[in-house]
Design a protein around this nucleic acid. Structure first.
Length: 428
RNA sequence: GGAGACGUACCGAAGAGGCCGUAACGGGAAUGACUCGAAAUCAUUUUGUCCCAUCCGGGGCACGUGGGUUCGAAUCCCACCGUCUCCGCCA
C-alpha cells in the first residue's frame, strides 16, 4: 500500500510503475482515486465544521441547563436537529468514499526498486548468481519419494487414508533428517544474531486480512470451524502480526527475528507431475526470518537475508542460484524480491526453495507499524525470507547428497543433529 | 466451560451524563536552573491520528473494539476482544 499523498503528488510515477508491471488496466484507478481523495477531503472539511458547531452548541446547552434555563436550552436544541441530517448524509458518504479509496489503494502496486528487471511474467525472471557447481552425476537420480522409500522414510498411502492427498508420514532417518534440518537452520540463524521465536500457529481473521487479500486468503488459508481462527500459511503472518498497530522506539530497530512454525496451505489449483510427493503439500514446516528496520537500511538487510539462505544451503553441499523476480512477476506489495533456487540433479534444473522480499513501507503502512524516531514518526520497512522449508528442502538435500550405492551423505554441519552419522545407509 | 471483578496517558490510578482528554493524584522519563559533578530541590515538557493553513494557528476523532440511547457518553444499553480471581477440565 503506497502513501496516498505520494500518489496525489506523483501520479505519473505511480502510472509508470503500473506500466512497468504490465497492469495497464489499473491505470485509470490512479485518476479515480485522486478524485475520490479530493471529494473525501472536501466532505471532511464540511463534516468537521458541522461537528465543531454541534460541540459548541452542546456546551452552551450544558451551561444553560446548569443555570436552570430550560426553555432557552430547548430552543437551541432545534438548531442542532437541523444540521444533524446533513451531518449524517455527509458522514455516510465519507465512509463510502474512504472505503472505496482504501480498496483502490490496496490494489495499486508498490513502487518497485529501480534495480528490478522489467518483464511480463516469471519466464522473464533473471538469474543473478550461481553458488556451487550444478553437478549431474553419471548415475540416475530417482524421484525423491523413491529415494525416501529406500530408507523406509515415507508413507504416503497411510497419509492419504488418514488425511488425504497432500499429507505425508515421514519415518525413521528421513523424519530425523527433517527435524535435523530445522534445528540446524534455527541455530544457523541464532548464530547470525537473529532472535529465535515460536509464534502462534493460528491467527485471527483481522490479522489475516491485514497481510493478504480476500482472494489470497480464500485460496490459501484453512479456517477453524466455529472460531475466528485460521491456520497460518507461514509464520510471517503471525510474526508480522506481532507488530500490527504498534509504535516501535527507533533504538529497538532493527528487529531481526527467526521463527519456526508448521505451515498449512490449501494449495488450490493444478498439481503437475513434478509436484507429486512432498513438493506441494498442505502441511510443511519452515524456519523463517523477518526484519523490521529503518527505511535507509532495508536494502542492506535484503542482501543479507537472501545471503543467509544461500550460505545455509551451501553448508549442506547443495548448489543454489538466486533468481531475481521481474516487475510483472513481483507481488503488488513488494519493492524487490529474489527466489533462492536449489539445484535438482534429477531434473537438471533449479527449483524454488525460498523467497526473499523487501516490502518497503507498504506492509507497514497497511498494518500501521510505526517507528518513533528523533525526527518524528515514520513507517518501518519490513522484509521476510525463508531460511529453509522441509520437507520440500529434503528433495534438494537427498538428490544432491545421494551416492551411487544409494547411501546419502550427511554434511559435516548437519552431523551433530543426526547423532554424529556421516552417512545414511538405505534399508532396501 | 461456569461465576465474579476489571480495561482511562510511559506505569499506577481517580472520574459514575455537561464544570474531565492539553485527563485529578502518585510515580517514571526528557530538558533547563542551582552544582566542579551528582543527589536533593525548583521550573517546563511528556497520547495517537486525520483535515484545513506556506508560517502562526484552527478544527475533527479516539477512555479495549464496534454499535445504540442523548442536544451532549469514559460515565447508560447491546455485542465482541482482552486481563485478573475462584471453580471445572487438561499436557
Amino acid at each position: 500500500m503506497i502513501d496516498i499523498k505520494f500518489l496525489r503528488e506523483n501520479p505519473e510515477v505511480v502510472k509508470q510503475n503500473i506500466r512497468n508491471k504490465f497492469q495497464d488496466s489499473k491505470l485509470e484507478l490512479v485518476d479515480k482515486v485522486i478524485a475520490l481523495d479530493k471529494e473525501n477531503r472536501e466532505i471532511k472539511q464540511e463534516v468537521e465544521a458541522l461537528r465543531a458547531q454541534k460541540n459548541k452548541i452542546s456546551k452552551q446547552i450544558g451551561a444553560l441547563m446548569a443555570q436552570g434555563k430550560k426553555e432557552e436550552a430547548e430552543e437551541i436544541k432545534a438548531k442542532i436537529a437541523a444540521d444533524a441530517a446533513r451531518t449524517e448524509t455527509l458522514s455516510a458518504r465519507e465512509k463510502e468514499v474512504e472505503e472505496e479509496i482504501k480498496k483502490i489503494m490496496m490494489t495499486i502496486p508498490n513502487i518497485i526498486d529501480p534495480s528490478v528487471p522489467i518483464g511480463k511474467d516469471d519466464s522473464e525472471n533473471v538469474e543473478v548468481e550461481r553458488y556451487g557447481e550444478p553437478v549431474v552425476p553419471d548415475f540416475e537420480i530417482p524421484y525423491h519419494t523413491d529415494i525416501m522409500e529406500r530408507f523406509d522414510g515415507i508413507d504416503l498411502d497411510s497419509a492419504r487414508r488418514v488425511a488425504g492427498n497432500g499429507f505425508y508420514y515421514l519415518m525413521g532417518d528421513i523424519a530425523r533428517l527433517h527435524s535435523a534440518v530445522i534445528s540446524y537452520a534455527r541455530d544457523f540463524m541464532i548464530d547470525r544474531g537473529f532472535t529465535y521465536c515460536v509464534p502462534p500457529f493460528m491467527i485471527r481473521s483481522d490479522v489475516v486480512t491485514g497481510v493478504m487479500s480476500f482472494a489470497e486468503m480464500d485460496a490459501m488459508m484453512y479456517k477453524i470451524e466455529g472460531e475466528d481462527l485460521y491456520l497460518i500459511g507461514t509464520s510471517e503472518h503471525s510474526m508480522i502480526g506481532k507488530f500490527i498497530d504498534t509504535i516501535i522506539p527507533e533504538e529497538k530497530l532493527p528487529q531481526t527475528l527467526t521463527s519456526y512454525s508448521p505451515c498449512f496451505r490449501k494449495e488450490k489449483g493444478a498439481h503437475g507431475l513434478e509436484e507429486r510427493g512432498v513438493y506441494r503439500i498442505h502441511q510443511f514446516e519452515k524456519q523463517e526470518m523477518i526484519v523490521v528496520c529503518k527505511p535507509e537500511e532495508s536494502k542492506m538487510w535484503f542482501d543479507k537475508l537472501w545471503q543467509n539462505t544461500v550460505d545455509l544451503f551451501r553448508s549442506l553441499d547443495i548448489p543454489v542460484r538466486t533468481l531475481e523476480c521481474c516487475s510483472g512477476d513481483l507481488a503488488d506489495l513488494k519493492v524487490k524480491s529474489v527466489d533462492v533456487e536449489a539445484w535438482s540433479p534429477r531434473q537438471k534444473k533449479y527449483f524454488e526453495v525460498g523467497s526473499c522480499s523487501n516490502l518497503g513501507d507498504a506492509q507497514a503502512r497497511r498494518l500501521k507499524i510505526r517507528v518513533n524516531g528523533e525526527s518524528g514518526k515514520y513507517f518501518a520497512h519490513t522484509l521476510n525470507n525463508t531460511v529453509v522449508a522441509p520437507p520440500r528442502m529434503l528433495i534438494a538435500f537427498l538428490e544432491n547428497n545421494l551416492n551411487e550405492d544409494g547411501s546419502v551423505n550427511i554434511p559435516k554441519a548437519l552431523q551433530p543433529y543426526m547423532g554424529g552419522k556421516e552417512k545414511l545407509i538405505p534399508k532396501k
